[in-house]
Nucleic acid binder design. Structure first.
Lengths: 131, 131, 131, 131
DNA sequence: GTGGTCTAGACCACC
DNA sequence: GTGGTCTAGACCACG
C-alpha cells in the first residue's frame, strides 16, 4: 500500500491518510487481517510527525476499520473491506447527485449533462495512463 | 437577489456569499451595471458581522466581478456575467470529471456510472420541488 | 457545568472530560444550544493542555454531541440530550448485567445478589450527602 | 485449571491470567498447596510470550497468592483461597455500589434499579448455557 | 519493538 | 476572540 501526501492540499494530512487507507482497503490492495505500517514507520516514510499518523490511525479505529493488537500494531478489521466499499459507493452517489443538481440549476439540460458525462468518460478512458 | 446563509454549514460564510453572488450573476438574476446592497445593509439583513460581508465583497472585487463606484457602492462589472457563467461551467466539468474518475477507480464500469447518472437525473427531476 | 479531573485515575484525561460532558448533558445540567467553555478557557481552568481539551471536544463532535460554530465556539447539538440519556442507560444496563453475571459465577445466589443490591441502595440513600 | 486468553480484549493479557488464576482459586478449582504450570509451559499452551506469563506470576507472588518453591515451581499459598474469595466479593460489592449510584444519579429510582436487576437476573438464568 | 497519552508551542482560517 | 491542524518531544504500558 502506497500512500501519497500533499501537504499543501485543502485536506488535512491526517484526513488524506484516512481516505487513502480506506480506499486501499475498498480496492482490496490490502485485506482484512493484515497489519498496517507502524505509526513511527509511516511517519518516517512520509516525513511527517508520528502524532499525525497516530491521529489518522486513531480515527480509523473509532470507525472500526482498524483494531489495535497489543504490542504488534494495527490490523485491518474483518468487516472493513465491505464497510469501505459501501462507504465509497455512497460517497460517489451523493457527490454525483449534488453536482448534477448544480448543473441543472445553472441552466444545463439533462441531455447536455449526459453528453458531458459521456465525453468526460471518453477522455478518462483514453488518458488512462495519467490516472 | 436573495442570499441565504447557513452558519452551520461546511463553507465559510464569506464563501457562501461569494458563491451566491456569482451564481446569481451567472443565472442573470442580476445583471452587469446593477448595484449590490451595501456592506452594512447586507450584514444587517443576514444578521452577520459586517467584516464578513466586506471580505466577500473584497474578494469579488479582486476577481473583477464587482467594481467600486465612488459614492454609490459596488457595481457588477460588464464582463462579470460571461465570467461567472464560464467559471461555473468549468467548475461543474472539473468536478464531474473527478467524481467519474473516482468511480472508475473504485471498480465501477463506465456503463454503471452512466446509468447511475441517469437514475440520479430522474430522481432530481421528479423531486424538483425540493431544489 | 463543573468538570473535575483526576490526573492519576485509570481513565485518560480527555476521556474523563468526554464522560463528564455527556453526563452533564444527560442530567440536563447543560442543555441543547448552549455553548461550552472554550478550549483555552477550560484548559486553563483545569490546568491541563489545550490540546487535551481539544481532543475531547473533537471526539464529542465526531459523536454529534457538539457542533462547531465558526468563530463562536462549540454548541450542544439538538439531539444530544436524548442521545446522552440513552447511551447512559444502555451503559448502566450492560454493566449491571456483567457484574451480576460475575456474582453468579463466583457462587452467589440470585437472592443473595438481590439483598446485596437492597443493602447498597439503602446505604447510598442514607449517605446521600457524600454523593 | 483451564485458562482462556482473548488477545483482542480490553484487558492486558497478563491481567487476564491474573484474574483467571485468582478466580479459579476462589472457586476452589485449584486448592492451596497445588503447583501451577511453569512459565514456559503455560506460555507455550497459550501461545503467548513467556515474559507475559512471568509478569502475571510475579504479580501474584507480590500479592502473596503464589509462593516460589525452589526447584519445584510456584505453589498456591495457604491463605490464597480465603484471600481470593474475599477480594472477589469485595470487588463485586464495590462495583455494584458504583453502578447503582450512577443509576440513581442519572435519574433512575431505587425501584427501577431493583426491577432492572430482577430482569437481568432472569435473562441470565435462562441464558445460562452461554455463560 | 508496538500503540496511547500528554505537554508545549506554533500557525492557520474564521468571525 | 474562536476552533483546527501540525510539529516536537516526552513518558507509559504491553509483548
Amino acid at each position: 500500500m502506497i500512500i501519497h501526501i500533499d501537504p499543501d492540499g485543502d485536506l488535512a494530512i491526517y484526513d488524506q491518510i484516512i481516505r487513502q487507507v480506506k480506499f486501499a482497503i475498498a480496492k482490496g490492495v490490502v485485506d482484512a487481517g493484515e497489519l498496517l505500517p507502524s505509526v513511527r514507520e509511516l511517519a518516517k516514510e512520509l516525513t511527517i510527525n508520528p502524532n499525525t499518523v497516530a491521529r489518522a490511525y486513531q480515527e480509523l479505529q473509532n470507525e472500526e476499520i482498524l483494531e489495535s493488537v497489543r504490542g504488534l500494531g494495527l490490523r485491518i478489521c474483518a468487516k472493513a473491506p465491505k464497510k469501505c466499499q459501501q462507504e465509497r459507493q455512497n460517497l460517489i452517489r451523493i457527490r454525483l447527485a449534488s453536482i448534477l443538481q448544480e448543473g441543472l440549476q445553472s441552466g444545463l439540460t439533462a441531455d447536455e449533462l449526459k453528453s458531458l458525462v459521456q465525453s468526460e468518460l471518453q477522455s478518462l478512458k483514453s488518458g488512462k495512463a495519467t490516472a
